[in-house]
């Protein structure tokens, strides 16, 4: 492992594909795998101290969260608390304090676990991500970033630079619920994040899920179905059927596909009825 002086040096190292360098930030995921002998890799670029990748910037149209921002930084940020409460909830439910102090938003994204806690919130807030390499910066919708299980639109030599959350003046109802077996330090079995703008009818809605598909999933068909609808038990029942078709959960050591399906539907109902743990 080596510590580069600055971002440029880090990007140069990472650009040399033959050398085989990989980035390491807070280490909260990577060190577990490394210690368990599940990473053959030993060449790491220590990016933790790169100042270029730290900080939260508020602009009029968006909040930019740099990749090395920790969960603790996120959950203490007043504007994020006010405008993106589900991301704060997600950060507060990621590990516990010691993990929140080290784990980074960038790491949570590029570790690409379908069970990660912040991606559903980022998807529901329609986030964009910026990627940087020696070739420059590119931006894409976060919803297009995850391609398959542990597959991302991330080229060799590219680092996640920042996450952008578009700001809005709309009156939103925010809902985030992580279902793990225990209330803290859990790995989610189902994670549900919803944002809805509602007048008489549903004007705008975004729904995202964790742990029920190979990737953090945006439930677009369910959203499309619900937009313009006036809620009724019949509409909710239909939406539940649609979301059930969108997800593809599995049986594993943490839960069952059946449980994940049922709970996803129940959470959708709770979200739509606005009775549950809202922010």
């Amino acid at each position: 492992m080596i510590t580069p002086k600055n971002l440029d040096e880090a990007l140069t190292l990472l650009a040399d594909r033959a050398a085989g360098w990989k980035p390491c930030a807070g280490g909260t995921d990577l060190m577990v795998l490394f210690e368990a002998g599940k990473l053959n890799h030993t060449k790491f670029v220590n990016i933790a101290a790169l100042t270029e990748l730290h900080g939260i910037e508020e602009r009029s149209d968006a909040i930019e969260i740099k990749a090395l921002t920790t969960y603790t930084d996120i959950l203490k940020h007043a504007t994020i608390q006010r405008e993106f409460p589900s991301l704060v909830t997600a950060a507060a439910l990621t590990g516990a304090v010691a993990i929140q102090n080290r784990g980074t938003i960038g790491g949570n994204i590029v570790n690409a676990s379908p069970a990660a806690d912040s991606p559903p919130a980022l998807l529901a807030y329609d986030a964009q991500v910026e990627l940087i390499s020696v070739k420059g910066v590119r931006r894409l919708a976060y919803a297009d970033f995850h391609k398959g299980y542990k597959q991302m639109d991330l080229q060799p030599g590219e680092l996640l630079k920042s996450v952008l959350l578009p700001r809005t003046h709309a009156e939103l109802h925010h809902y985030y619920r992580k279902v793990g077996t225990r209330r803290a330090q859990a790995i989610s079995k189902v994670c549900f994040c919803g944002v809805v703008e509602r007048e008489d009818r549903i004007k705008n809605i975004r729904i995202a899920l964790g742990s029920v598909a190979p990737i953090p999933l945006r439930a677009r068909r369910t959203e499309t179905f619900l937009i313009g609808k006036q809620l009724s038990s019949k509409i909710i029942d239909e939406a539940k059927k649609i979301i059930d078709q969108e997800i593809s959960p599995i049986d594993d050591i943490r839960s069952t596909a059946k449980y994940r399906r049922r709970v996803t539907q129940n959470l959708l109902e709770e979200f739509l009825c606005g009775t549950g743990s809202t922010n």
Binding site: M1, C24, G26, G27, T28, M31, V32, E35, F44, N46, V97, A98, I99, N101, R102
Partner: peptide
């Protein structure tokens, strides 16, 4: 406060 087992 951090978990020292996860800090390289």
């Amino acid at each position: 406060v951090v978990n020292s087992c996860l800090v390289p």
